[in-house]
Design a protein around this nucleic acid. Structure first.
Lengths: 132, 132
DNA sequence: AAAAAATGATACTATTTTAGTATCATTTAA
DNA sequence: TTAAATGATACTAAAATAGTATCATTTTTT
């Protein structure tokens, strides 16, 4: 089961890199270090920026720095910037193929399960992921 | 987050239909009832058959029936016929983009999380999904 | 024996999602 | 004013998911 997208993976590692660099870095620098495609990482960090995880400054000497304390960022924070949450009590399939949807409990179970996944992801801080 | 594939959805509903039909039915009959594409459902039930959930008989009057008691089949049983499990402690990405993989804890966390998902899925019996 | 009605196996195609690229605009420091 | 950064956004490529097509095999009925 795919829990983490590549975007999330890149985001996590970029955050850790920025932290190690003392709290600020640029796409170019991050990419040089972690071997991610520059324009893709850029798109990713822009999303973190728009969502209050990072803040950015343009121009020479610019880059991305933390807007939220590094130690408070969780796996859930990042994952759910790139992953749609299932709406509670609605069938997860676009075509409502099923004629019994009014008595179907699957949709409720699924969102219960997603809640638990979310709990799990929330319990993991990005800062806990690196280093022994 | 996508927890259930369409194959799993169809499989679940087919199982419930077979149960309601008294424990045996054919693809044609199931499809007529639940509006799934016949050859796709066929492929799905063949997988359930190969994996000991159902057993099949060919020829006129044939079809699929339970090989395992309906009440014992869980969401995990079905899901993991169609979903790869993440290998413990191995990076989930094919290209090992990351130079720090020896100190990376993400892979361990991910498989811990998958274990919890599995627990959740195991706790849901297919027989619990229908009816009020 | 032959035809019909079922599943088995498997290769192929289409659609959707994920991953990644390209490009032009804007900001800022040197 | 130019270079070095991000912002926005449209486009393309690759991979995964969903679905189709076809031929083989088995079994029952006629």
């Amino acid at each position: 089961m795919k829990i983490i997208k590549k975007e999330v993976d890149y985001a996590i590692r970029a955050l850790i890199f920025i932290y190690e660099k003392g709290g600020k870095s640029s796409i170019t620098e991050i990419c040089r270090n972690m071997n991610a495609p520059n324009p893709f990482l850029r798109k990713i960090l822009q999303i973190l920026s728009k969502n209050g995880i990072l803040k950015s400054t343009k121009g020479i000497g610019g880059g991305f720095e933390f807007n939220k304390p590094f130690g408070e960022i969780t796996l859930a924070d990042i994952t759910y910037l790139f992953t749609e949450k299932i709406k509670k009590g609605s069938c997860p399939f676009k075509t409502p193929i099923c004629s019994n949807s009014h008595k179907c409990k699957l949709k409720f179970k699924i969102s219960e399960i997603e809640d638990k996944i979310y709990e799990q992801l929330s319990s993991v801080k990005i800062s806990d992921l690196w280093r022994p």
